[in-house]
């Protein structure tokens, strides 16, 4: 079971239901059922797709993302990866280590470590030599435009740079699915545009599925699909014609070196 869920490859990538990851009848209740965050949600994400999850504050967007990466447990329902149900925390940890990257609005970096060390943390469970870990972490930091800042303590970096470190940490293991929970929510407009461009570019280049939680309709419009949530229920799920669209050509050039 563990080996099967490590990577979806070839025909396994879409599984029997055609989805990389799927939620079936997922509910998440808080405070003993008094507060429903999600109610009977069904959702399928195919490999390589970009999906925006939109909705007002408290609508259940973040709860949905937490359940999609297994850092929270559903009260009811099942999550499937490549068509197979994920039940144990051990399996979820392995998926997050190898196939799912997460980016948070709050960055969630270890504040006393350098950018490079933060990225290396995501490689510690991979039985890589120290040199290889260093090379991979440095390589991905270079890809996100932080080659010259990799040895800086992350608290000395700007918000945009910290989010790039978080992106580098999320993609260093070349996941199949990238979850971004309001990744530009704490950034100024220029940094937000650069980070968004970087995210879309990385996903497009690597063929990663992207699930992007956002308040920003313009950002959501850049995804292939938009899922709207209200009061813990999916109220609309629309395919959009557009795919990757850089916000401003010059900004994109700055962000992806």
């Amino acid at each position: 079971m563990i080996q099967v869920i490590e990577r979806c490859s070839g025909s396994d990538k879409i599984g029997h239901s055609g989805a990389l990851i799927a939620l079936r009848g997922i509910s998440r209740l808080h405070d003993g059922g008094a507060i429903p965050a999600l109610r009977n949600v069904d959702l399928q994400i195919i490999a390589g797709a970009s999906v925006a999850i939109v909705g007002a504050s408290g609508s259940g967007k973040s709860s949905l993302v937490n359940l999609l990466c297994g850092i929270d447990h559903p009260t009811a329902g099942t999550v499937f990866w490549c068509g197979r149900p994920i039940h144990t925390q051990q399996n979820w940890a392995r998926l997050r280590r190898q196939s799912i990257g997460i980016i948070f609005q709050e960055f969630n970096l270890i504040p006393t470590l350098t950018a490079l060390e933060n990225v290396e943390l995501a490689l510690l469970g991979h039985r890589l030599s120290a040199n290889l870990r260093y090379a991979r972490a440095a390589g991905v930091l270079e890809r996100v435009g932080l080659a010259s800042r990799m040895h800086h303590i992350v608290t000395r970096l700007s918000g945009g740079e910290r989010q790039r470190v978080a992106i580098a940490r999320a993609v260093v293991n070349e996941p199949k699915l990238l979850l971004a929970d309001e990744p530009t929510g704490n950034l100024d407009s220029v940094s937000a545009a650069n980070v968004a461009d970087l995210l879309f570019k990385l996903c497009e280049t690597a063929g990663m599925a992207l699930i992007l939680v956002t308040h920003d309709d313009a950002l959501a419009a850049r995804c292939q699909r938009e899922v709207r949530i209200r009061d813990g229920v999916i109220v609309s799920d629309t395919n959009q014609a557009s795919s990757f669209r850089p916000s401003e050509p010059e900004d994109a050039a700055k962000s992806v070196k």
Binding site: A93, R96, I110, L124
Partner: peptide
């Protein structure tokens, strides 16, 4: 929580 989120095992 961060360690768990990036896939560290228990």
């Amino acid at each position: 929580g961060i360690f768990a989120a990036i896939g560290w095992s228990n």
